Simulated assay, not measured.
Amino acid sequence: MTPAPIVIVAAPFSGSSWLAGVLGTQPGLYAVPQLCAFMADRVDELLQIFALSQDEHGDGLHRTVAELYFGGQQDEQLQAARGWLVERRGRLVGELLDELAAKVAPRRLVIPETEAPLRPIQLRRLRQWRADTQFIHLHRHPWSQGCRFAAWLQDRLFVPIDYRDYSRYPPLPDPQIPWLRANETLDRFFATLPDVSVLRIASEAFDEDFRAALTRLADFLQLGGDAAAWASLRDASDWIYAARGPRAAPGGLEAEVWAPWSDEVERLAQVPQLDAALPWRPDGLGFDPAVVALARRYAYR
């Protein structure tokens, strides 16, 4: 059996790719981009979903296979990775992930995941894969998350239907919807699994006291004394997946990693509030009461 995997679960734009990158620079861990692997049970189904997707869902898996098995992430290696995955189209996705975990062993596989928290069936598949998985539930204040997410959504031609507020016409993209859905789904999921190993931590904790937050994380993951040696690291640029991939597979990381925020968006994001009108809504409304209630449970004000 390979070492227990680590899965960072979070709502979109909560910092999961950044945290994976920080962990991925450490010798005992191997962090990959977002694989979106739990969208299907079988590899052939997963590849069909990737082919039909209007987004970059398949890029992270292709980049990972290209890097691990073919020594790089350029067009030639990506083409070889596609063939490698097609050869395994008859397998279960869990078997594919087992193969990746074995490839990086004795390092522990670290997977950031922002798709599964929005889809309970994907969380069930994740749980069925490895019962010994350790989960990091990363969350961010809905205001800070929403300011950045809303700015990115403005330039998107394709916005998932479940990111939209249908009380208006035309429906309005609203980042508080996926924030609430993802975090509520994760809370319910973990509540039904009393034996699950999960740490809930705020992304703001790394801004407030990076060393303390990372030490807490290292203790949870039982990384031992080596944690102190990397508790001062904040820069994930050395992570092998930190940059965008080539044209054939540019994605794999959350867009917040490279999205160019305006000074105004960043200024708003740095002053989180729960009781003010939302700057991304033209109707002057604030957060839904359910969002406020959950945010307060997470100790946000």
Score class of each variant (00 low, 15 high):
F189G: 00
R88P: 04
E115A: 13
R89E: 15
L268G: 10
E266P: 00
E95V: 13
I6N: 03
Y163I: 05
F13A: 09
G225Y: 01
A80Y: 06
L19Q: 04
G284S: 01
R124C: 10
D44K: 12
P178A: 10
L78G: 01
A299Y: 01
W258C: 02
F210V: 00
E254N: 09
D288F: 11
Q134C: 14
R91V: 01
L274F: 11
E87Y: 07
A116V: 14
Q154V: 14
E184C: 05
E56F: 11
P246F: 06
D174A: 05
L35K: 11
F38I: 14
H57E: 08
R107S: 08
S16F: 14
R267Q: 12
A218D: 14
A229G: 12
E87F: 06
R42Q: 13
A242F: 02
Y163N: 01
D55C: 07
V265T: 15
F189L: 01
R244T: 08
G284Q: 06
A150S: 05
S53V: 09
R148T: 11
R168H: 07
E266R: 10
Q79R: 06
R108K: 14
F38R: 13
A105T: 08
D235I: 06
W129N: 15
R301G: 08
L214T: 01
K103Q: 07
S167Y: 02
A255Y: 03
I8R: 02
L47Y: 13
Q122A: 13
M1D: 11
P3H: 06
A182Y: 08
F287C: 09
A66H: 10
F210Q: 07
I161F: 02
Q122S: 13
W280A: 10
P260S: 08
H139I: 15
L118F: 15
R42I: 00
L157F: 03
A231F: 05
P260T: 01
A227L: 15
R200F: 01
W239G: 03
S262Y: 02
W280Q: 07
A11Y: 13
D207V: 03
L19Y: 09
Q273M: 10
I240M: 05
V22I: 14
